[in-house]
Design a protein around this nucleic acid. Structure first.
Length: 585
DNA sequence: GCCGTTTTCGGCCCGACTGTTTTCAGTCG
């Protein structure tokens, strides 16, 4: 797919245009980039099928950009972009990743210090050269250094949402081969860690294809999108895809599949612990199986499935998301593993935006999509007025929206459809912890979500008190993305999480597990703390369009990694129970 | 450069926050 390459070129062009203060064009290019990035179909396919006119049908792509796409598909280059790069040969997308660095500052840095990439930027900052530039200062220099640390730390770590679709795509392609018996995801991706270093896949070959591995590996290393083949062998091949994601494929024997999967799923710490348990029982566990010493010789006693591997060393099956050696082994030994929430146990999504606040879909469309997912309810929680930029709703608009929702619910009732739209809002927690909507209006909604969307850089105690005050508001039932972190981009704001959890527990307020792959907030550690205290949680997608509803599984994975059970997750409950919870406050 | 229930021109999300200033530019969402 050329979509990603084009997206990154257009995004760079937007930055170049921004440098020259050209009005409006940057936004157009930025929008085109964003659309291409998220386009589920290959632009090349569209072009082959429908030509340039077909490209122009994509919203956000007009005549000129369609023309540039065609130029790229034919020549692999866009002349105008090459010209821009020649004029200022900086790695714009790399530098833009540094939080706080934008086109204008990059331009200054290039013109004064000839900085073109991250390494040079770091060196200049370390040598104190940046603080002397006009309109830069010591603080900016320090922020840049901190930003670089973030980029570096995240380099080579991919979001779950980047790695998982790629892995699933590869599996879908290889599954078509008749030689493939099983092929599954292993590694940190299987454990659904929030960031992934590389993708590990594990396969077995059908017994009737003795030469099958050759065919499978050959297909694998020739998949579209591969930019480098590191290794090519019959049991292990390793390749790099675009975006620099590395993928390993291993082919193992059918009777070693379980032990290999256990081994390659990790975590490393979990594996060390399981091997120790095996040793303590006179057994040996490795990727080839579980072995017992009989008359001086190791004899294999398990290996085909993970279940039998765990059983052989005296443990119940442990879900991959729990395999971190943070207590799951001990719990397993005592028969106290939690019955963590399953991927199909969510009954509704409580944090969603509609076209009323600039979301892509109407309330009706969001509801229909939720119904198609088998949900029993959906909560519409548009932004409120403080977030003018997000078209936040004021009191009157909220009341108008309430009427529309009542109408839709009446319609469902009339058609005997067992589905309900709940009306909420995502109110803003202002600096002092008050909300930006009057209580008497909040009182008319089914529930209120409150979240911090401004002033992230508060002192820990101040921020904690700010959120606790919002928790104490009687209408606030859920706190959205409670720590404000953006994975690989922004740290959580400093927060006394124990105080927050205590306040939530005392007031019957739920905390959100935001399923948006860049947020996944709360994280696993905090979820587990919440679960241990008995604080209730809501897994929400924070959808701004109906397709985002599908991201719920990222949030469920996070909940599972935090040991959450259905009794902890309020939106796994039937509607009456959920409403009772809301009323308890 | 894109778009159109104000369609082929004239709009285009705009306020908060930060760090630099001493009135504002740049970035973010």
């Amino acid at each position: 797919m050329k979509n990603q390459e084009l997206a990154s070129i257009f995004s760079a062009m937007a930055a170049y245009l921004e440098m020259d203060e050209i009005p409006f064009k940057p936004q157009a290019y930025e929008k085109a980039a964003l659309i291409l990035e998220n386009l589920p179909v290959d632009v090349e396919e569209i072009y082959k099928r429908e030509g340039e006119k077909g490209l122009q049908k994509i919203p956000g792509i007009g005549k000129r950009i369609a023309n540039k796409i065609v130029e790229y598909l034919h020549t692999g280059k866009i002349k105008e972009y090459e010209k821009m790069r020649k004029k200022m040969p900086v790695k714009i997308n790399e530098l833009m990743k540094v939080e706080g660095l934008g086109p204008k500052m990059i331009k200054e840095l290039y013109q004064h210090l000839k900085i073109t990439n991250l390494e040079q930027l770091e060196k200049a900052a370390q040598e104190g050269k940046i603080r002397n530039l006009p309109r830069f200062g010591l603080k900016t220099e320090q922020n840049i250094l901190q930003g670089i640390q973030f980029v570096k730390r995240s380099r080579g770590r991919f979001l779950l949402s980047e790695a998982l679709p790629l892995a699933e795509g590869i599996i879908a392609s290889l599954k078509k081969l008749p030689q493939i018996d099983k092929i599954v995801i292993a590694g940190s991706l299987r454990r659904r860690k929030e960031t992934i270093g590389d993708i590990d896949l594990l396969a077995t070959i059908k017994p009737d294809y003795p030469q099958g591995a050759k065919k499978v590996m050959n297909t694998f290393v020739n998949l579209p999108g591969i930019i480098k083949v590191w290794d090519y062998g019959l049991t292990k091949s390793s390749v790099r895809f675009k975006k620099k994601i590395d993928v390993d494929l291993r082919v193992v024997k059918a009777d070693e599949f379980g032990s290999a999967l256990q081994y390659f799923t990790g975590s490393k710490e979990h594996n060390i612990a399981t091997r120790k348990i095996a040793i303590s029982k006179g057994l040996k566990l490795n990727e080839y199986g579980v072995f017992r010493k009989i008359r001086g010789k190791w004899k294999k006693i398990a290996g085909a499935t993970e279940e039998e591997v765990y059983q052989a060393i005296g443990l119940p099956y442990i879900e991959p998301e729990l395999r971190t050696n943070r207590g799951e082994i001990e719990a397993a030994l005592q028969g106290k593993l939690p019955r963590i929430i399953k991927y199909n146990e969510i009954r509704g999504d409580l944090h969603n935006h509609s076209s009323w606040d600039g979301g892509k879909n109407s309330i009706r469309e969001m509801a229909e999509a939720a119904r198609l997912m088998g949900y029993e309810y959906i909560g519409i929680t548009d932004h409120t007025k403080f977030l003018r930029i997000e078209h936040g709703l004021d009191e009157k608009q909220l009341l108008d929206q309430h009427k529309e929702i009542e109408k839709l619910n009446a319609e469902f009732k009339k058609q005997k459809i067992n589905f309900r739209i709940l009306h909420g809002c995502e109110a803003n927690i202002l600096n002092d912890g008050s909300l930006d909507i009057e209580d008497k209006v909040l009182a008319q909604l089914d529930y209120v979500i409150a979240g911090v969307h401004s002033r992230f850089k508060m002192k820990k105690e101040e921020m904690t008190q700010r959120i606790i005050r919002a928790i104490k508001n009687p209408y606030v039932k859920i706190i959205s993305h409670p720590t404000g972190r953006l994975i690989n981009r922004r740290d959580a704001y400093p927060l006394d999480i124990d105080k927050i959890l205590n306040a939530a527990l005392e007031t019957n307020t739920a905390l959100e597990i935001n399923a948006c792959p860049e947020r996944l907030d709360l994280n696993d550690i905090n979820i587990r703390k919440a679960v241990e205290k008995g604080v209730k949680l809501a897994i929400d997608t924070d959808s701004h369009e109906k397709t985002h509803l599908q991201y719920i599984h990222y949030g469920i994975a996070q909940a599972r990694r935090g040991w959450a059970t259905p009794k902890d997750i309020i939106n796994s409950w039937p509607l009456p129970k959920l409403l009772r919870f809301f009323q308890k406050k």
